[in-house]
Write a protein that binds this DNA or RNA. Structure first.
Lengths: 232, 232
DNA sequence: CGGAACGTTGACATATATCAAAGGGAGTGG
DNA sequence: CCACTCCCTTTGATATATGTCAACGTTCCG
């Protein structure tokens, strides 16, 4: 059983941005700070304000990290899938989680103990540099989110989101088909709005002949105009 | 002249979050990567998308880091004063600045060369840990900004801002007086709105007897109700 | 002194949230 | 295999916060 657990741990280390390039010695050490956690869809991992005694790496499944308003509206900060880590920054600032986290799809998580991790950071500069890189990406994403929330309307944000999705599949000739990996309710919260408004934004793009929508399947008919709406 | 420059450099190192605790050897090395820059109010240090070849530490004055919408509205991400650094994260993500920066008050800046700094990071784990701490604080602040922008109205954000300002002066008995350190135009952009709307929010708080406003001087008459509006 | 930037106020436009309702799909249980 | 429920999604009518535009007084600084 222990060997099985170790195998899983190593697997998750390998697919994670943060740890994939560490040498065996560091991984041994890391293993001592890690444990596995299996969590069903819907489970709340922590609330904003909870004491942060550990952080997480996703092995399987999906987790959302979000802020909640007093009256219940939520804004998703990020969605973490396999290989992604989250709540790392909480370890270094006051020891409280600055947001909440909930499992979106049955997940297998690596739980890494804060104190042991921090103590091994000092001995492994390589991890520190990985962490810095990771934080930089996060900062970049959050800065972008702030700008989009404050400076653009929902349709523009949706256009940006769609462009991001298809960038991965390069510029194959139109029409490009993509399947949303999140429910539209989740997407709405990620874009800082509500399902009703998101639905109307999809409508608008459809009416203008830029996309077609069939459930979670989106066809991009006119990438150029989509770019235009997104603001280049 | 060289000695004078060195003196200033050391002074800025000492007041900076990032470097104040480094030993002399590290500071010597850092000095090799640093130069001083005197910039008048209004100067644009870089635009979003520019190649990031260096980052900055403020010795004197004030700088705003902001996002611009296609039609000219701006959202300030942060304001950096003496001791603060900015644009550090740009070094590690694609080498492009994710936002623009402009000098708000005549400033003396430390300009730190990216490549030399990164190369010395590998030899000085202490700096890496400081950087991680710095990034964590930034992430925390940006996450908070995202939540506030998306989940609360302008008056609430203003209340949060005011509470932050007075937290420093602890809970002396009311009324507490504070002087805004930024022009209201700047404050509006920091709170994700425009001067007109900010002005009306000040009005609302004044009408309800929670604060009084006289130019940049704000008196907090009722901290409890201000907390209530801020959402605890 | 005079112009420019700032701050405030008013009337108005608009994007988006809210509320209510109804139509699917997917899964469950009989 | 059907019926039922739950959740997601969409649509419509309405409310509201905030942005826009215009005007005016103030302060600041050359």
């Amino acid at each position: 059983m222990l060997r099985t657990t170790g195998f899983y741990l190593r697997h998750i280390f390998k697919i994670s941005q943060l740890f994939s390039r560490l040498d065996d010695r560091a991984l041994d050490e890391l293993e001592q700070a890690s444990s596995l956690k299996n969590t069903p869809k819907g489970e709340l991992l922590f609330y904003e304000g909870d004491a942060a005694t550990s952080f997480f790496v996703v092995g399987r499944g999906k987790v959302k990290v979000f802020k909640l308003s007093p009256d219940g509206k939520e804004q998703i900060l990020l969605i973490a899938g396999p290989g992604d880590s989250f709540a790392e920054a909480a370890m270094f600032t006051g020891g409280k989680f600055p947001a909440s986290a909930q499992v979106l799809e049955d997940a297998e998580l690596l739980v890494i103990n804060r104190d042991r991790f921090v103590s091994m950071l000092e001995r492994n500069p390589g991890i520190a540099l990985n962490l810095i890189a990771e934080f930089s990406v996060l900062l970049h994403k959050l800065a972008r989110l702030v700008g989009e929330l404050s400076l653009t309307d929902v349709t523009t944000r949706l256009a940006c989101y769609l462009l991001d999705r298809i960038e991965e599949k390069a510029a194959s000739s139109e029409p490009i088909t993509l399947t949303l990996s999140d429910k539209k309710t989740v997407l709405a919260s990620l874009l800082g709005t509500i399902p009703e408004t998101l639905s109307r934004s999809f409508q608008k793009l459809t009416r203008d002949g830029i996309i077609t929508v069939d459930g979670a399947k989106i066809q991009i008919l006119d990438t150029d105009r989509l770019r235009e709406i997104a603001g280049e």
